[in-house]
């Protein structure tokens, strides 16, 4: 029984890591006031590009970078529409989903069923030999560890630096930021692109470390779950870790239960994360009805001088 729980928790962290990257990416994007509904599209492009580049170069780390840049490029398209042209962010975000699914399907066709080099776990000396915790926490791959560092880093930027204040101001009251001499569009572009990169890395992690293969549509709605996780974590980076691992756990639960001979049909178990996401969203809304922590200017284009 303990062995089952240990392996479930270990796998939860692995399954939660792509979610964590994408959730953090979307979170800093939203903190600056830009709603990028295209997470699913960015992730799938990251997954495809990451796999393809690892396959071509033989180096999975180049794959991870490529995944990040794929996300960044799609994010840039969103930026062009939502920041430069200031059009409806919902529409351009939704179209990114379709664009990402289409492009990854078309370009990724030749990589289906291929084998590429993957990211391997690293056991941290000493720590990994701790009982129970060692296996859960310290036998993961580098990207798991770095995702936690990035979480701390984002928290630090937001709360301890003047750039963090600028991000919060751009997301809460862009006009205030503007009149304080902050270049709102630039701040939003930076957050969107960095966020897009992280989302893309999340996608690449999926194909290069978690699933270790590429299939069309393999993100299977994870991007949307991440959008919900941002709300669930109340735009607080450290809470995203909890949310991501929780949903990673739900994701692997079906495999793990089947492995120990549980007989609930696979498809019904696969529904759990989606239903759970809705329930979790609902709970956070009811709980925080009067303290909606979303950035006030989220999703609203900022036009200087047009009030």
């Amino acid at each position: 029984m303990i062995e089952f729980i240990v392996s479930l928790l270990q796998a939860s962290i692995r399954a939660g890591t792509p979610l964590l990257y994408a959730t953090l990416g979307e979170m800093i994007t939203e903190k600056s006031g830009i709603l990028n509904l295209g997470v699913e599209g960015l992730m799938i492009m990251g997954a495809m590009s990451g796999f393809a580049l690892s396959f071509i170069t033989g180096n999975p780390w180049i794959g991870i970078l490529a995944g990040g840049f794929a996300g960044l490029i799609l994010a840039f398209i969103h930026g062009f529409f939502s920041i430069t042209l200031k059009v409806d962010q919902t529409v351009s975000g939704l179209m990114l989903v379709l664009l990402g699914l289409g492009l990854s399907g078309l370009i990724g066709k030749s990589y289906i069923g291929m084998v590429a080099n993957y990211i391997d776990p690293i056991a941290i000396p000493l720590l990994s030999s701790l009982p129970i915790l060692g296996k859960i926490l310290f036998t993961q791959d580098l990207l798991v560890y770095s995702s936690l560092l990035i979480t701390v880093f984002i928290w630090f930027i937001l709360h301890k630096t003047s750039f963090g204040l600028s991000i919060i101001a751009a997301g809460e009251n862009p006009e205030a930021a503007d009149t304080a001499g902050i270049n709102v569009d630039l701040v939003r572009y930076i957050c969107l692109l960095v966020g897009g990169f992280l989302i893309g890395v999340g996608g690449a992690y999926l194909s290069l470390a978690y699933a270790k293969l590429w299939t069309e549509g393999m993100t299977a709605g994870r991007g949307w779950i991440c959008l919900a996780l941002v709300i669930f974590s109340g735009w607080i980076p450290q809470r995203a870790v909890i949310g991501a691992y929780l949903f990673g756990g739900l994701d692997v639960l079906s495999f793990k239960l089947q492995a120990i001979g549980f007989t609930v049909p696979y498809q019904l178990l696969k529904m759990i994360p989606y239903i759970a996401t809705i329930l979790v969203l609902l709970l956070s809304l009811i709980k925080d009805k009067y303290r909606l922590k979303a950035p006030s200017a989220l999703g609203k284009p900022y036009f200087r001088g047009e009030r």
């Binding site: 351009s92 664009l99 289409g102």
Partner: peptide, 17 residues
């Protein structure tokens, strides 16, 4: 793959907006 249709769909809308 039929996914190419998605590309077209999204591009049309993006070009229009």
């Amino acid at each position: 793959p039929i996914a190419v249709v998605y590309i077209f769909q999204s591009l049309v809308v993006l070009f229009i907006i």
